[in-house]
Every structure is written in structure tokens, then in C-alpha cells.
Amino acid sequence: MWAQIINALLGIWLMASPAVFGFADDRTISNNAHIVGPVIASFGIIACWEATRVVRYYNLLPGAWLLLTPWVLGYDTTTAIVNDLVIGAAVIGLSLVKGKVSGTYGGGWSAIWKKDSLHATEARRQPRV
């Protein structure tokens, strides 16, 4: 869970960074931060809960995008390049951290289409009500 909280905070930091570092006037850099930041923060927050922990993988895409943006979008500010690269690498690393999952969820989301998952086998063992 802590890894996903840090990812959420990194997303919020990305949103705030153009104003903090003073490159808010560079529309390319700031627009990218203002679009990708809220996305990372949202996935991070949703992935805090055990039943939706799988959402942490959704942050791999915006994380990878941040590793490419300085070149794809042609950044010319060193601070912005370093900021995006560090956040991107950290978000990718932290989204791979599963963390503690203490509950059981009947086999999880894949159990909706897979046969004989935990919820189905458990239900068969239970007496009919």
C-alpha cells in the first residue's frame, strides 16, 4: 500500500512541479505534467485498496511515457528533464511493488472469466442454503 501512496504523491508532485520550478510558462512541459500527474495520482489512490491493487500496473504506461517525454516533446530545461525521468523511473518501480494483501477475494478479477477459481471451488464445498 505504501508504494501506491508514494506513487499518488509523485503524481501530485508532478502536477505541482511546473509552478514550483518556475517553468509553468513552457506550455509543453506544464501541460504534460498537468495531464500525466492526475492520471498517476488517480491510479495510485485506486491501487491502495487490496481488491483493486491490480490497478497499480496501469501506472506502468504513464511511467514509461515520462521516460520518453523529454525527447518526444523536445524539452530544453534540465530541471524538467531530470524531474520527468526520476518520477517516471520511480513510478515504474513502485507500481511493480505488490505490497501486503491479507484478504482473500475469491480468486480476484480474473475469477470472473476463468473456470474453477477459488470462489467456485469454495462454493461447491459449501452446503446448499
Binding site: A41, W49, A51, T52, W113, H119
Partner: peptide
């Protein structure tokens, strides 16, 4: 308001998962 609505998503999903698994057992 946006933070509130994003925070609501995670805790609402476990119940939906239980319902979808139930419907899967019905289908089986």
C-alpha cells in the same frame, strides 16, 4: 471533489467483484 470521487472507487469495487463472481457461478 475530485479527490473524494477517486478515493470512493477502490472501496466500492470489492463488492462489485463479489457480485460478478456470484453471477459467474450462476452462469456455470
Amino acid at each position: 471533489s475530485a479527490v473524494i470521487s477517486v478515493v470512493m472507487i477502490g472501496p466500492a469495487m470489492d463488492e462489485m467483484l463479489a457480485s460478478l463472481q456470484y453471477l459467474k457461478r450462476v452462469k456455470e
